[in-house]
Design a binder for these strands. Sequence first.
DNA 1: TATGAATGAGGGTTCATTCAT
DNA 2: CATGAATGAACCCTCATTCAT
Lengths: 224, 224, 224, 224
Amino acid sequence: MDATSSETDPPKAVPPKRPTGPRDPVRTRAAILEAATHEFRAKGLTGARVDTIAKRSGVNKRMIYHYFGGKEGLYVAVLEATYSAIRHAEGDLHLGDREPLDAICELVRFTWRYFIDHPEFLSLLGTENLHRARFLKQSSRIRDLHSPLVATLSHQLARGAEKGVIRPGIDPVQLYISIASLGFFYLSNRYTLATIFGRSMDDPASLEARGRHIEDVVLAYLRP
Amino acid sequence: MDATSSETDPPKAVPPKRPTGPRDPVRTRAAILEAATHEFRAKGLTGARVDTIAKRSGVNKRMIYHYFGGKEGLYVAVLEATYSAIRHAEGDLHLGDREPLDAICELVRFTWRYFIDHPEFLSLLGTENLHRARFLKQSSRIRDLHSPLVATLSHQLARGAEKGVIRPGIDPVQLYISIASLGFFYLSNRYTLATIFGRSMDDPASLEARGRHIEDVVLAYLRP
Amino acid sequence: MDATSSETDPPKAVPPKRPTGPRDPVRTRAAILEAATHEFRAKGLTGARVDTIAKRSGVNKRMIYHYFGGKEGLYVAVLEATYSAIRHAEGDLHLGDREPLDAICELVRFTWRYFIDHPEFLSLLGTENLHRARFLKQSSRIRDLHSPLVATLSHQLARGAEKGVIRPGIDPVQLYISIASLGFFYLSNRYTLATIFGRSMDDPASLEARGRHIEDVVLAYLRP
Amino acid sequence: MDATSSETDPPKAVPPKRPTGPRDPVRTRAAILEAATHEFRAKGLTGARVDTIAKRSGVNKRMIYHYFGGKEGLYVAVLEATYSAIRHAEGDLHLGDREPLDAICELVRFTWRYFIDHPEFLSLLGTENLHRARFLKQSSRIRDLHSPLVATLSHQLARGAEKGVIRPGIDPVQLYISIASLGFFYLSNRYTLATIFGRSMDDPASLEARGRHIEDVVLAYLRP
DNA sequence: TATGAATGAGGGTTCATTCAT
DNA sequence: CATGAATGAACCCTCATTCAT
């Protein structure tokens, strides 16, 4: 999935028959999840259609109720999988093992790159916030997923301050929110921004420029 | 309207009869627009119900079609009114008449305050971006609304650089997007953020802290 | 009005403002009647829209209720005017003053020509028969309008039989119905006929050929 | 179904529950089609109500969309079935195996009888022509359905001319249209005809008389 | 006489979900 | 486990008509 692909339905022409044989629970579940992610991302919770998800995943509509209980259950599952994915990818960076400034820089670059590569993450968060996180709150595992991130950031900020390379007193949560903000808003609002400013936000050069700008802003802020 | 009010429908118990006498086109139109803003903000385009808008505005459902042509026409009208409102409030700041650093600081504070006070702006932009600005593109007056902002920022950045109080080479559009980002993302995603970080984002102290943080970040970036 | 003009609405672009000054009851009534004839002809009773009639006639919708009481009253008025028109045109032929065979031939040619030139007559009769003449029965003047026609035909058939130029015993009503049939069915069903036979029924050559055929059939039948 | 039954809805009191068990797609489809034929015949396309069709057929309204896509799709299906029925009944006459004059006489009698027995055929054609065959044109199989009729007529006219029992040079399509005309117009317009001529067209004696008249007209025309 | 706002009933259609096989 | 028919509640929208000016 990439940031510039068209998301409208009719031209999509997804293969309606998946090559899995019958009675393969794991693949059925995965196929539904994949199709649902796409649909919820493109239309939101209310706009998404159970029929469309069934058709796209090539499974019978009844299976959605079998595996996920219903549209909302499926939506929650998509949400969990989406958050889980980014946090695991983040974990793979092993930010705790690097030098403080380097670690934060890496997090900035990773975050920006991840947002570009996973537009469903942006859309789903937007949708979930429209609903005031009503569904995310139902998920028990979500909060645990985020403590390592805060812990690592906190640790590196403290070490950086000690070493004199980072200004002291920075709140790790504020910092993370700002790192996310600078990329998230640009990408998730790129359609209205392009319209009001009359300038493409999607082409590689613009994305590259924005990436550099974000690094500049964060580094300026960290500077002691 | 404020950022913390409950938005669910049933408990809302809005006065079903508006106090306007009949045959008042101006008030009818305004009442529809107000109710629609609320409904689109709370539910998005797909989730919004025409019936609910009619009920809340106290007018006959048919009038929505009379004045706005339909649900989408009404949505476009809401979008235009919403953008128009922020740009006019911005214009009232007369940023061009101030000192460069002061002007930008004022813009930062204004933007943050405006986002807090107008949650419908955040939601509607999220909704519109879910639809890839399909409706905003239909509005002809939108782009003209934004050129003064860019012009003013550009002018003040140049003056600031000349005077040696602002680092040279800053792109005004990138800067504005960053200013908006730091507040927009925090507020529009406050529900998921509160959930994943297990910390309120909505109380006055948190809002105050975030406001100061944003100023810090922007000022650090502007510093030569 | 002619047999081949397109009748769909959107491209029609009728002048929405008629050049009459205000307060001209006669013209207002006539404008409504003209627009209604067009609309009922093109859409039938159920398909016709009061709004469309008002717009096309350039008068306020309320006037339709003022002058005709409502949609059905207007429809009855259109029906009466339509029948009245053909019978008056028929009367102008003065068929009673001609030789028997000549009179009947003239009636055949007139009927065919009138049907071609007045497609609204065909459509309105079709619509009225769908409703089992429910509205025509409300009109008191309709029946009197038709006795002269039957009387004249009867008279000429008798004279022709006496003179030996027309076979005796022909029922004038059966004959008239047949004369009307041969043209009416061809023209009112020309769209389905063209489709099932894969051959145009509307071009001048086809109309000419059908006219000759009808004359042949009637004359063969009259032959003693 | 016969020509004289009342078609208005309220007194009809159709059994609202059909005796078919659930889960019988074939019967469900057929029940919808039967109810739709009745409704479109009585009210035309615009006047027909999807709710009424659902109620009469005893199936859930949703099924109409499941099987036919919508009101128009259902109408097209009704149209196809109606045309298909008359052409198949016609085919069963095996007109090609008879003597020329006899074959044509049989066609005349069959057509008249079929029109009397299938008033829905008349009404649906009227409705379809009001819409200028817009829907019939969508049907691919319609034209093929009619070539055998023209071929047979053509063949018999040629043979009759050879044998000297039919006048040469008769166009088979014109002849067929005339045969249909003489019965179709009488029956489909019987309500207005009865009103303007003040004479019943529906009683058995009148139908019998009209049948004989039609034969007379056609035979007179065929006579060499 | 003329106008355009206002109305309530009902139009076709779509939806998430469940049932029978 | 899997299927497609079946359901009833809404949803957006349209209509003929009336009201207030």
